[in-house]
Design a protein around this nucleic acid. Structure first.
Lengths: 207, 207
DNA sequence: GTCTATATTTGGATAGAC
DNA sequence: GTCTATCCAAATATAGAC
C-alpha cells in the first residue's frame, strides 16, 4: 500500500534522496510562510505581493511558483496556519468546575489571539481579500475551530445555538473594537471580565 | 468677504457661468461617487480600481483626476459619505422615556447600517486598505458620529466610558458576526433584542 | 529547483493638445 | 474638462534553459 504513493522500483538510496529533497522543500516553504506572516503583519493583509515576498526570501519571484501555485495559495496556507494555531490554543483550555472561569479563559484566549495579529484576524474572520476563498481542506480546520468552541460552551451547559451566537458576538466585538479603536492599548481587554460576568449572569441567572 | 473667494472683478454673467460649471462639476463627481459605491459593494472594497471606475462612468481613466487627485481621495470621499449617512441616521433617533427602548433603537440602527453594505462597514470600522488614512475633514465627521453615539448613551444615564465601550463592543460584535458568518441571513439580527436586554439589565440592574 | 526571458494585465499617474 | 499619448511601476503567471 505504502509503495503505491511513489515509484514502486525505488532503491533505498533513491528513497532517502527523495526524503531529503522533500525535507528541504518543506523547509523552504516554511521560510516563505514565515516571511509572509511578517509582511502582512507589517504592511497589511492586502498589501502582500508575491514579488516582494520572493525578494524577501532571496528568490526570483517566479521561483515562488515551485512552492505556491498562486497568491491565493499563499493566503490559503496562512488561513490554514492561523486556524491550526487557534485550534491548538483552544485545545489547551481545560474545563474546570466553574462555568464562568471557563468562559473567561475562552474570551481571554480569543481576544488575545485577535489582538496579537490584526492581519491574521482579518484573514480568518473578515472577508477582506477580493476573490479569496479558502480551500476545502483549510476551511475544514476553520470548521473544527468552530466546533471546538461550541463544544466548550456545551460543556458548561450552553447548548442553545442562540447562546453560542450571542457569546461569539460579544467576544468578537471586544476583539474587533480593540483592534479598530485602541490598537496598541488595552481599553477593551480590560472589559473582558465584565463582559463575561454580564453574559454568565444572563445565561445562567443566579444559580 | 464673499467676493474674496473668487475673482473680484467678475461680471454677473461670468459669475453665473462659474456657478453652472461648478454645479456640473459636482454632479459628475456625485455620479463617480455613486458608481464607486456600487463597485465596492459588488467587487469588494479592496478591488476598486480607478480605471474600472472611470470606464464605468464612460470616461477615460485620466479624466478622473479632474475630480479626484488620487485613489485615496476617492476612498476618503466614501469614508466621509458613510460617516455622514450614519450621523444623519443617528440624528433621527429620538430619546423616549424608556432607556432600553433607546438602546434597542440604536442597536438596530447600527447593525442594519453595517449589514446593508459590508464594504462601507469595512471602510468605516476596519483598517483593511493598506496605507489609507482618512483626511482630517473626513475624520472629523467620524468623531462626530462617535460623540453622537456617546451623547445618546449619556441621555439614558450611561456616562461611564466603560459602559459605552462595552456597549459598542456588543453592537459591533453582532454586526461583524452577521457579516462574517451569516451574510445573507438574520441569525445575529434576531439576537439584537436579547443582547440589548442583557446589557440593560447589566448596567441598569433591576430598577 | 532556480534561473532568464517574456507574456500579459493592470495599476496609478502626468503632460499636453484641443 | 476631456481627450490622446505615454510613462512607469507593479502585478501574476508561463516557458524553457541550465
Amino acid at each position: 500500500m505504502a509503495s503505491a504513493s511513489a515509484s514502486a522500483s525505488a532503491t533505498p538510496t533513491e528513497s532517502r534522496r527523495r526524503d531529503r529533497r522533500h525535507l528541504r522543500h518543506e523547509a523552504t516553504k516554511e521560510e516563505i510562510v514565515d516571511k509572509a506572516w511578517q509582511m502582512v503583519q507589517v504592511e497589511g493583509l492586502n498589501a502582500l505581493s508575491l514579488r516582494a515576498l520572493a525578494r524577501a526570501v532571496d528568490m526570483e519571484p517566479q521561483s515562488l511558483y515551485t512552492y505556491f501555485s498562486s497568491k491565493h495559495a499563499v493566503y490559503d496556507r496562512l488561513f490554514l496556519d492561523g486556524n491550526r494555531e487557534l485550534l491548538a490554543r483552544f485545545g489547551q483550555i481545560e474545563a474546570g468546575n466553574d462555568p464562568e472561569d471557563l468562559l473567561r479563559s475562552i474570551a481571554r484566549l480569543f481576544v488575545t489571539f485577535a489582538t496579537e495579529d490584526e492581519a491574521r484576524y482579518q484573514l480568518l474572520f473578515q472577508r477582506t481579500i477580493p476573490e479569496f476563498e479558502p480551500s476545502a481542506d483549510s476551511y475544514a480546520v476553520a470548521i473544527e475551530v468552530f466546533a471546538k468552541a461550541r463544544a466548550l460552551l456545551e460543556a458548561v451547559g450552553l447548548d442553545r445555538g442562540s447562546d453560542f451566537d450571542l457569546w461569539t458576538a460579544l467576544v468578537a466585538g471586544l476583539a474587533s473594537q480593540q483592534l479598530a479603536n485602541d490598537h496598541d492599548g488595552d481599553r477593551y481587554l480590560l472589559l473582558i471580565d465584565e463582559a463575561v460576568a454580564m453574559f454568565a449572569k444572563h445565561v445562567f441567572g443566579n444559580r
